[in-house]
């Protein structure tokens, strides 16, 4: 195998590892919804991605979309039967009162960006 091929293979392999680590190896850091509220910025995903909320209490998730990507214009929280449009630049308040503990994934309308609600009881 020629040197250029070895280099291409090596770099390619390392790039693949980097892609895996970068996208799939990230650690989730949950943000606690203190005082019954949590601000979630919608830009290239959801920031913070993981929100911790208490069981049985109403928490207001305040989604603000600042990213004009049409991918993010719709929000789906299926476990709470919520489908909402997120108009650009507007804060959309979504109230949830979880009745059971667990992890509940939410996503954009096309299911490409994901976030998580962790309910602790």
């Amino acid at each position: 195998m020629s040197i250029d091929k070895i280099i291409v293979t090596g770099v390619g392999f390392l790039t693949a590892l980097f892609v895996y680590w970068f996208f799939l190896g990230k650690k989730e850091q949950a943000v606690q919804a203190t005082s019954g509220e949590a601000d979630i910025e919608v830009s290239g995903g959801y920031k913070p991605e993981v929100v911790e909320v208490p069981k049985g209490k109403t928490t207001v998730l305040k989604f603000k979309r600042i990213d004009p990507s049409s991918c993010l214009e719709e929000l789906l929280i299926p476990d709470f039967k919520i489908r909402r449009e997120l108009p650009l630049g507007e804060t959309v308040n979504i109230s949830i009162t979880p009745k059971k503990a667990g992890k509940f994934v939410y996503s954009c309308g096309m299911n490409m960006y994901h976030g998580k609600i962790i309910v602790k009881g």
Binding site: F22, F23, K26, S43, G44, G45, P68, S69, C71, M110
Partner: peptide, 19 residues
């Protein structure tokens, strides 16, 4: 441009999409 903009905002979150 929208493909680049969306890619950049996604990468900042260590996320990726079709764009």
């Amino acid at each position: 441009w929208e493909f680049y903009r969306n890619t950049w905002t996604s990468l900042k979150n260590r996320a990726a999409n079709m764009d």
